[in-house]
Amino acid sequence: MKAIGFKTSLPIGEKESFIEFETSKPTPGSKDLLVKISAVSVNPVDFKIRQSSAKDTVLETPKIIGWDAVGIVEAVGENVNLFKIGDEVYYAGDITKQGSNAEYQIVDERIAGRKPKSLSIEESAAIPLTALTAWEILFDRIRISPEKDKGKSILIIGGAGGVGSIAIQLAKKIAGLKVIATASRPETAEWCKEQGADFVVDHKNLVENVRQSGFEYVDFIVDFVDTNTYWDRMVELIKPQGHIASITGSAEPVVLNKLKSKSVSFSWELMYTRSMYETEDIQEQHNILNKVADLLDDGTLKTTLNETLIGLSASNFKKAHEQLESGKTIGKIAIKF
């Protein structure tokens, strides 16, 4: 099968930052699906792993990355019971296994969902990783409940990115929250409003801008940009007994002690936790993706796709990674094979 990968971590502008190569089609294990991939999308995790996973070394076999895909089930493992051959699926995969930038991929059925019927393959490919991340951070980590939390406020730092775009929709349309999103350019501010944000504020002078929007404190804050860069501002803005959650990690320790006087909770979210550790509730990702598919099909949610490239080629992945690395991407970029 054809695949796109790399043997060493190079700047994206280098000729061999991505290479095209042939490799054998994988064989599904007990709970696996073999998926013939139709489209993928790219995420910041893709370029971060490309930049770091083969530094100062040359791999014997090229590494295939990519963690968003849509495709058709071509074969199944002996203990698969959620899908059958011919089903259309979408998923974000497992970061510890071979990625989706190839003609075929193996994926555990418990972390795959049915492709939304109303969306094209590229529109569907834009959804899995970001929807899972946003759903988990809101409903599994912070444990927001539409019944008890409707009408409360949430600040979404990084509203126009892939995760921010779907998080705005979930927070507004499912949780019933008042949504404040950050965006610094007219086009990103407009995008956030299109996703459903009630207020859009510039991340510069964040505290002042949020308060000018009428919020002394906010009930919840989710960070999709940089934990420590915004930490003091999040500490200032969070309501006593509120909850902050982040997906971005930190090279430096996060000073949790600053939350003590307000009795504020803090959570990390990593979408790959369930698949990496095969947690007891690993199949919850299958359930979430099916719920999201239903919400897309009934029009409650909409795809966050903003650009599509055509063709399984090294040049298309280079182009997509260049855009992601610029930090100015709005919504999602998909590649249709």
Rank of each mutant, 00 (worst) to 15 (best):
L119G: 09
Q105Y: 09
E103F: 00
K150V: 14
A54E: 02
E278T: 07
S261Y: 08
V107M: 13
I238K: 07
Q195W: 12
T229V: 09
A167W: 12
M1I: 02
A131C: 04
M1Q: 05
K204D: 15
G158H: 11
C192T: 11
M271V: 15
A167H: 06
I221Q: 10
D219N: 15
N316A: 05
S261P: 08
P26A: 03
A183D: 07
G93I: 09
L324Q: 15
W67D: 12
M1L: 03
R274D: 05
M271Q: 04
D108E: 08
K84P: 02
S153W: 13
Q51P: 03
V58F: 00
Q285G: 00
V40H: 10
V201G: 06
K193E: 10
S153D: 14
L59T: 00
G299M: 05
T279A: 03
C192F: 08
R185I: 08
G5W: 01
G158K: 15
L324S: 12
E60W: 01
G13E: 12
V70L: 14
S30H: 10
F83V: 01
I238V: 12
G311T: 11
A320G: 03
H321D: 04
K178L: 11
Q323P: 02
L309R: 06
I95S: 14
I247W: 04
S120W: 10
G176S: 10
I288T: 02
S124Q: 06
T303Q: 01
A134C: 08
G164A: 10
K319A: 08
D297I: 05
T279C: 05
Q241V: 06
R141Q: 15
L324W: 04
L59H: 00
W268C: 07
G176C: 09
S313A: 11
R143L: 10
E325T: 06
L270S: 14
V210W: 06
A171Y: 13
K204Y: 05
M234S: 09
L155M: 13
Q285S: 00
E208F: 01
T273H: 05
G66P: 13
E236Q: 07
E278L: 05
N290E: 03
S184M: 14
S118D: 05
Q51F: 00
N79P: 15
A293I: 03
A102V: 09
G158V: 13
E252W: 02
Q212M: 07
F6Y: 02
Q51V: 01
E22G: 04
K36M: 02
K204F: 08
K117E: 15
T96Y: 07
V40D: 14
D108A: 11
I49P: 00
E269Y: 01
W231V: 06
T96C: 12
N316S: 08
G13R: 05
Y272W: 14
L237S: 15
S30G: 05
T8A: 00
V42Y: 07
N287A: 02
F83D: 08
Q283Y: 03
T57Y: 11
V218P: 09
E103L: 01
T57I: 15
V200D: 10
I174V: 11
Y91M: 09
Y217Q: 07
K193A: 07
K31P: 06
